[in-house]
């Protein structure tokens, strides 16, 4: 969200992404690319600690 930066992709790849992003249900090719990359990153990044998670959810009315 804090700004964006540009990354170069091969034109043919971008064309393919454009073609399929709508079919796959994305609102934009950027969203498609972001999702694909985030899925990959999730495999690599560490999970948050239990304490951290508990803290963030504290006070959510629906839960006890």
């Amino acid at each position: 969200m804090f700004g964006t930066s540009k990354i170069k992709l091969e034109k043919s790849l971008v064309d393919r992404i454009r073609k399929f992003s709508e079919i796959a249900g994305y609102a934009s090719p950027e969203e498609f690319i972001t999702h694909a990359l985030e899925k990959e990153l999730a495999q690599l990044e560490d999970a948050d600690s239990e304490e951290e998670i508990k803290k963030r959810l504290q006070g959510l009315g629906y839960m006890s």
Binding site: D48, E50, Y62, M63
Partner: peptide
């Protein structure tokens, strides 16, 4: 929701089974 990714207040981390916002 299948296209906007919000299914609940909470989601779970499949690596830890812990809930997250």
């Amino acid at each position: 929701p299948g296209k906007h990714n919000i299914f609940d207040f909470l989601d779970r981390d499949p690596r830890t089974y812990l809930p997250r916002l």
